[in-house]
Computed example of a mutant assay.
Amino acid sequence: MMVLDGFGRGKSLGAAAARGNVDAVRRILQDHRLQPDALNEFGKTALQVMMMGCTSVASVLLEHGADPNVQDRCGVTPAHDAARTGFLDTLRVLVEHGASVNVPDHSGALPLHTAIREGHGDVVEYLAPLSDLGHRDGHGADALAVARDARSPEMVELLERLSRSS
């Protein structure tokens, strides 16, 4: 059995999460009784560095008590990362485990704003009813303005339809 210090454990957990290796993540958490929010050498938790498309890794970390609302030095949460990369299933797991979709990053952007800018319509459709559509980012733009700025008529239409139906 490998003996690891605090950073070594956080590094191993983060590396396993980044590779999407759910078995290794589970084993490290159980065998070493490691806190799921242990930091790696870059000051990030496993949830922050995990392979975003690997929903099972997110589930194991969250079931072991990882903080779904952890923010990096730019205020970015795992929900922002999932919205940016378009991984709807991972975003759903985060929300089911208490991730707030209304925590702005340091630029004032919500995960919804990030998904709009990246053009992930399915993520926008999921986030819009859960999000504060009137929230303005650091440039004073709400979700609809972000969609207009992104020159995305599909997003504008989607947001207008969603705001009418709410």
Rank of each mutant, 00 (worst) to 15 (best):
V146C: 08
V60R: 03
S59I: 00
D67Y: 06
T77L: 01
G98L: 11
S59A: 11
L34F: 02
G119S: 11
G119K: 09
D142Q: 05
A16T: 07
E63M: 13
R151Q: 15
S152V: 07
G98H: 10
E125H: 09
R33I: 05
E154K: 13
A128R: 00
L127A: 01
V124N: 04
F42W: 11
P153C: 11
D122E: 15
T77P: 00
H106S: 08
A82K: 04
V95P: 00
L88T: 06
E118F: 09
V146D: 00
N40E: 14
L29D: 06
L127V: 02
S152Q: 13
C74M: 15
E157P: 01
S166K: 10
A141E: 05
G98K: 06
R33Y: 10
S165G: 10
A24D: 14
V60D: 02
S100W: 06
G8S: 10
V49A: 04
V57L: 07
V60N: 02
P111I: 03
V101C: 07
P129V: 08
A143D: 07
S100C: 08
N21M: 02
G108P: 01
A17H: 01
R33T: 07
E125F: 05
L61R: 01
G121T: 12
D37T: 03
M51I: 03
E118C: 14
L144A: 03
G119C: 11
S131W: 02
Q35V: 12
F87C: 14
E125Q: 14
M50H: 06
I116L: 02
M50C: 12
D142T: 01
I116M: 02
A115L: 05
C54A: 10
N40T: 07
M155S: 13
G98T: 06
